[in-house]
Each structure stands twice: as structure tokens, then as C-alpha cells.
């Protein structure tokens, strides 16, 4: 028994040594991001071209990167993915390195409409996603043209939805005619009352694409990327359409790269950012990751198939709002979000 045990330990030690030794050969770039969100080829080509090893590690939740940064573990990484909603706090909290855009000449390809001046000094947008309404023309009881349609009684048991206070409250605020990033408690309270009705119609939060493909729901409030997956899965039988909204704006969120304070390999991080902003590189990346992209040159260079994808087939692409950092008001949102879900 003891012998078997010591043999086992020795084996394990050998294994772990092998892994670390393997990793220590080349310069390294450490990136923390979503998995399955960047093409393997892009990473492999970058590694070859610049003779570096890229270590990708993955988050499960947008909150993960925030928690890592605020807990002081940012310097473990050279690039961290986060989204626009947290930028103000991250900048003001001093968790990020300021960017020198002259080191990222390709960033000129990025549409400035999607890249606020204040954010330009600290982040580079990667991909973006609309959070909009999609429904099944055959199964959904009504045609949906605005957020208020979602709380109609006919929609009971029909809706799948993304979750999170800061995704749900904006649509309620818009439906009520308020600022989607309101910090006014009375408005948030009214939005909460709207969401109570919405909540009654919702079957489940999360897994929207699985549920709509399997037929558990007929309408979803979700990301464009998930919609693209669902439509691709349905293939020829696709009866899903992006809801033809008439006046309500939709949320556009960004996944962006920031360099955390104290990053060890700033130069490599710059090289990488410049690399992914190259139109050809990004266009190739869009084949595997058919999401909306703020890089206009890349979209122009991308395949016909990508540009005509049914998930992006809607004509209110510019009628959008952004999720802003609401500062301390986040706790008010949280309080009402809890009330919504605890009842």
C-alpha cells in the first residue's frame, strides 16, 4: 500500500514537472477570457508569427474578471476580457493600465461609435453582442414589436431570457419610457413592477438557445451570438426571426480587452491587440465566432455568409443603447432584482 502510494506521488510529481517545464520555454502571453470565443487558428498563427506561447484561461461569468481584478490578482494576466458596463469602475478604481494607442495602429479600424473616447485610453473592443428579442414565427402566439409585448398575458410560458439585474432592468426602463441606465430609485421601482409581469411569462433564465431549439419556449430575449447558434442548429427548418422592433432601442454590449495594472508582458499584449485588429485576421476569426464586430474593415473583409447571417438580419442596428456603469445605484438594482426573484 505504502509503496503504491509513493509510486503514485512520484508519478504525479513527474507529471506536474513535465507541464511546467514545457511552459517555460518561450515568452508568454497570459489571457483571461471566455472559452470558445476566439479561433484556435488565430492563436496558433499569432504564436508562430511572434514566437510566443499564448496561455488562455477561462472565465465562467463576467463577474470573474472583476473579482480577479478587484482582489488584486490582475497582474497575473496580460490581457483580461471584460465588458463595457464595468469600464467606469475599473478605470476609476485604478485597476487598469492606460493604453498607448500608437502601439496599436490597427485599432484605427474600429468604429469610434462603439468605442467611447473615455474608454479609448483603456480598452480595445473585441466583439459585440446585441441583446434583442427573437421569436418563432410558427409557435409564438403574437408578433413582437416592442418590449411591452413581452408582458402581454398571451406570452405566458413562452419566454426564455438572459439573466442579471443589469440586463433585465434596462428593457423595463425603456418600456416605461425612462433612461435605460437610470439611477433614480422610483424609476427602478417602477421597472421592478414591470419585470414582475415579465417574470410571470418567463419559463427560464439562461439556456435560451437550447430551449428554443427544443421547443420549450417560442420567444427569447437573448444575445445575437446565441441566436446565431440556435438558427444554425435549426438549419433549413429555421422559423426564428429577430423581432421587428419599431421604436424601442436594443442593448449593444461589448466584450473588450483591457491590460490589468501591473501586467508582466505589456509589449506582447500590444502586439496581440494590434494583431486581432488586423482586418484579415479578424475576418477569419469571424468564421468560427459569428458575432457582431466593431471592426468595420474586418466586417467588410468577412465572408458573405457572415454578413448575411439571419441572426443579424434586422434593420434597427443603430437604434441602440449601451449599458453604462451606474455606480452605487447598482445596489438599488440588486435590491429590486432580489425582490423580483424572491417574491
Amino acid at each position: 500500500m505504502k509503496k503504491a502510494l509513493s509510486l503514485l506521488i512520484a508519478l504525479v510529481m513527474l507529471f506536474s514537472l513535465g507541464i511546467t517545464a514545457n511552459a517555460a520555454e518561450r515568452k508568454e502571453l497570459n489571457i483571461f477570457m471566455w472559452s470558445d470565443y476566439i479561433s484556435d487558428d488565430l492563436i496558433a498563427d499569432f504564436e508562430d508569427q511572434f514566437d510566443v506561447r499564448v496561455n488562455l484561461s477561462y472565465m465562467n461569468d463576467n463577474a470573474d474578471s472583476i473579482t480577479k481584478l478587484t482582489a488584486g490578482a490582475g497582474s497575473e494576466y496580460d490581457l483580461i476580457m471584460t465588458c463595457d458596463a464595468y469600464m467606469e469602475s475599473l478605470i476609476n478604481g485604478g485597476y487598469l493600465e492606460e493604453l498607448d494607442l500608437s502601439q496599436i495602429p490597427n485599432s484605427a479600424n474600429i468604429n469610434k461609435a462603439y468605442w467611447s473616447e473615455q474608454n479609448q485610453g483603456y480598452c480595445v473592443p473585441y466583439l459585440m453582442n446585441y441583446i434583442y428579442v427573437v421569436y418563432d414565427t410558427e409557435r409564438c402566439p403574437i408578433e413582437i414589436t416592442c418590449y411591452n409585448d413581452l408582458i402581454r398575458p398571451e406570452m405566458k410560458g413562452q419566454i426564455g431570457s438572459v439573466d442579471g439585474a443589469r440586463n433585465l432592468f434596462p428593457i423595463a426602463l425603456i418600456a416605461l419610457g425612462y433612461d435605460p441606465n437610470s439611477r433614480d430609485e422610483n424609476e427602478i421601482k417602477e421597472a421592478y413592477e414591470w419585470l414582475v409581469k415579465y417574470n410571470e411569462n418567463v419559463v427560464a433564465y439562461g439556456s435560451t438557445e437550447t430551449n428554443i431549439v427544443s421547443g420549450a419556449i417560442s420567444c427569447m430575449f437573448t444575445y445575437d451570438g446565441n441566436t446565431a447558434e440556435a438558427m444554425a442548429q435549426l438549419g433549413e427548418n429555421n422559423t426564428l426571426v429577430v423581432a421587428p422592433f419599431t421604436s424601442d432601442p436594443v442593448q449593444l454590449g461589448f466584450d473588450l480587452y483591457v491590460i490589468p495594472k501591473g501586467a508582466q508582458h505589456m509589449d506582447l499584449a500590444y502586439q496581440f491587440l494590434n494583431y486581432i485588429c488586423d482586418p484579415e485576421v479578424m475576418a477569419a476569426n469571424l468564421v468560427d465566432n459569428p458575432y457582431s464586430c466593431p471592426n468595420d474593415a474586418a466586417v467588410a473583409a468577412a465572408s458573405e455568409e457572415y454578413r448575411n447571417g439571419p441572426a443579424f438580419d434586422f434593420d434597427y442596428k443603430t437604434n441602440i443603447f449601451f449599458q453604462e456603469d451606474v455606480g452605487d445605484a447598482i445596489t438599488i438594482y440588486d435590491q429590486y432584482y432580489q425582490m423580483l426573484k424572491v417574491g
Partner: peptide, 18 residues
């Protein structure tokens, strides 16, 4: 560390889109 994720972390991360 930044170098390596465990399998469950990777799986949960992929679960975002299925």
C-alpha cells in the same frame, strides 16, 4: 494561475453558448 484552467472551469465557460 494564468497558465492553466481545470476541465470543469473550461466546461462551465463553454456552457455559455451550449
Amino acid at each position: 494561475s494564468a497558465r492553466q484552467s481545470t476541465l470543469p472551469v473550461l466546461i462551465l465557460s463553454v456552457n455559455r453558448t451550449g
